[in-house]
């Protein structure tokens, strides 16, 4: 068990700098977005009040309503929020490959050293699985912390009488993309991330197939991934005589089986078939 914590620590350390960069980027871009949104709201309000010859903000509110932060990011589907998250996702997708290949390729291939650690090779696998997951959840936490701050910053830039407070879940619900990443029900959260983890496990199986059998393994990996996706989507194509919750349960069941099978195959490959 000590081996696992030490390997996880090592993998997390290698991700600290990318994590800090991503967190700062998300916070900075989104705060800048909040600033831009506030300016936009203020200008628009002034324009409307001038055009319609309104004397007070209260009149504006009665006629048109006030634009809260949640409203503006919903109406604009704020790219200031979506873009940095998209970049993080792109980097993490790349990293899921890189976490393996960095140790195989290059002059100093660290994988041989890792494989010769006098403990079960499972630890290597789980360290490489959990390190990116930790970063993903840490980034979600950053996002959850930054959103209310953005909201407050947005309001602080507006005149007192134009401020509207909404709770956090309104902000998350304003953008469907955000709602998928941070589902508000525990059940949905578990389902989304369970599916995500299963996808990562399938992807790792593909990487290990390629690393074990090279070109032949690459073909195998592609076939394996396509088959996994195909089987997983079977419940979605079922007819209307199935209830939604039945389909959902079937989907969850199939994904669990695929995940477990892939996990077993990965650990087997790492133990018996891998070549450095």
């Amino acid at each position: 068990m000590m081996t696992f914590w030490k390997l996880l620590n090592l993998e997390v350390k290698r991700l600290v700098i990318p994590f800090v960069i991503m967190a700062i980027m998300v916070a900075a871009v989104q705060m800048y977005g909040a600033h831009a949104m506030a300016r936009h709201t203020e200008n628009e309000a002034k324009e409307i009040m001038a055009r319609e010859k309104l004397a007070t903000v209260q009149q504006l509110e009665e006629l048109h309503g006030l634009a809260s932060y949640a409203d503006v990011i919903r109406i604009n589907q704020s790219p200031w929020i979506i873009l940095p998250i998209g970049l993080c996702i792109a980097f993490l997708l790349f990293y899921l490959f890189f976490v393996w290949y960095r140790d195989f390729i290059g002059k100093h291939s660290f994988m041989s050293r890792l494989l010769m650690v006098p403990a079960s090779r499972h630890h290597i696998y789980f360290a490489k699985l959990f390190a990116p997951l930790l970063v993903i959840f840490a980034l979600l936490a950053v996002q959850l912390l930054v959103l209310p701050v953005e909201n407050r910053y947005y309001n602080s830039l507006l005149p007192d009488e134009m401020r509207v407070e909404y709770p956090l879940n309104y902000l998350i619900s304003a953008i469907p993309f955000l709602r998928k990443l941070i589902p508000l029900s525990a059940e949905q959260f578990a389902f989304n991330y369970g599916m995500g983890i299963a996808a990562v496990i399938v992807l790792y199986t593909g990487v290990l197939l390629e690393r074990s059998f090279r070109l032949l393994g690459l073909f195998g990996a592609i076939v394996y991934a396509v088959a996994a996706v195909y089987i997983a989507t079977i419940p979605l194509g079922l007819g209307d005589h199935w209830f939604f919750y039945e389909k959902a349960r079937l989907l969850a069941g199939i994904i669990s089986v695929i995940g477990a099978l892939s996990l077993w195959l990965s650990l087997y490959l790492l133990k018996r078939k891998i070549t450095v």
Partner: peptide, 8 residues
């Protein structure tokens, strides 16, 4: 191994 297997 013929090369030092440690990260750069």
């Amino acid at each position: 191994p013929d090369q030092l297997p440690m990260p750069g």
